[in-house]
């Protein structure tokens, strides 16, 4: 089980410090699938990066099966079985798909790599030796990113908007893959997504907005009430009239 206890996160941008996460409490159990959703900028990726150790929380604790891992580095958390598939994965110059997957798996198992690429809808023959460079489309990059997590044996796997840039045909395969991970392994699966098909995989839906968890619900509940949620700007009329600086408008 992964536990976030009163997690707050403040980051500095060019001008000032911004509080990104506000006192978040969350328990993620083994073998369960969680789908995290909510408006853009709500803090979903920030929660994921805090779990992975990419962001250091300003307050609070993170526990993995009872062990406090708050001060552990990214690499240490990775070796404890935490994984994060980036929303915007980096490109490289010179690193090939097979090299990345070998690093991820800690071994060079060609058969496994072919199976994994198949699961994300890519043909191994075309991709294994390719460099993960600027020639990759956004969708290809996302699939390789997902593959790099599937290659690992994880206790907690967080996928950040995995469906972005992925076509309908491959999307079907992707949801099947997530279902299989869910059934076969003891992994705690966290998928950040806005897709109904992925939401339906969830044992629990976590709605994140304004740096907080605004709701813990089921897919059914969530989908039935989504139409009623009003996410429009609360100060639109003032903005138009120019009576409010844009900075204060949210």
């Amino acid at each position: 089980m992964l536990e976030l206890k009163s997690i707050s996160l403040t980051l500095a941008d060019e001008k000032n410090e911004v509080q990104i996460l506000k006192d978040i409490d969350l328990k993620l159990e083994a073998k369960k699938t969680y789908v995290m959703t909510g408006p853009n900028g709500g803090g979903k990726s920030s929660i994921a990066k805090t779990i992975m150790g990419i962001y250091q929380p300003t307050a609070g604790q993170i526990l993995l099966n009872g062990e406090d891992i708050t001060s552990k580095s990214i690499s240490e958390r990775a070796r404890l079985g935490i994984g994060y598939a980036f929303q915007q994965p980096p490109r490289y110059k010179g690193l090939t798909v097979t090299e990345l997957l070998s690093i991820a798996a800690g071994a060079n198992d060609l058969k496994q790599q072919c199976d994994i690429l198949f699961d994300v809808g890519l043909c191994a023959q075309d991709y294994l030796e390719r460099e993960i460079n600027a020639s990759f489309s956004g969708g290809e990059l996302k699939r390789i990113e997902i593959a790099s997590l599937l290659a690992r044996n994880l206790k907690v796997a967080v996928f950040d908007e995995p469906e972005a840039g992925i076509d309908l045909w491959s999307f079907q395969k992707l949801t099947e893959t997530f279902e299989r991970v869910h059934e076969k392994h003891d992994t705690t699966l966290v998928i950040i997504s806005h897709q109904e098909r992925i939401l339906r995989l969830a044992d629990q839906v976590i709605v994140v907005s304004d740096g907080q968890i605004s709701e813990l619900t089921t897919a059914e509940e969530f989908l039935s009430e989504i139409e009623r949620i009003d996410l429009n700007c609360r100060c639109r009329d003032d903005c138009i009239k120019g009576e409010m600086a844009n900075a204060e408008c949210n």
């Binding site: 992975m52 990419i54 580095s73 990214i74 690499s75 990775a78 070796r79 994984g83 994060y84 980036f86 915007q88 994965p89 980096p90 490289y92 990345l100 690093i103 991820a104 800690g106 790099s148 690992r152």
Partner: peptide, 10 residues
């Protein structure tokens, strides 16, 4: 990001 990605792989 390149460094971080590889660190998340261990």
């Amino acid at each position: 990001e390149q460094l971080m990605k590889l660190m998340t792989l261990g």
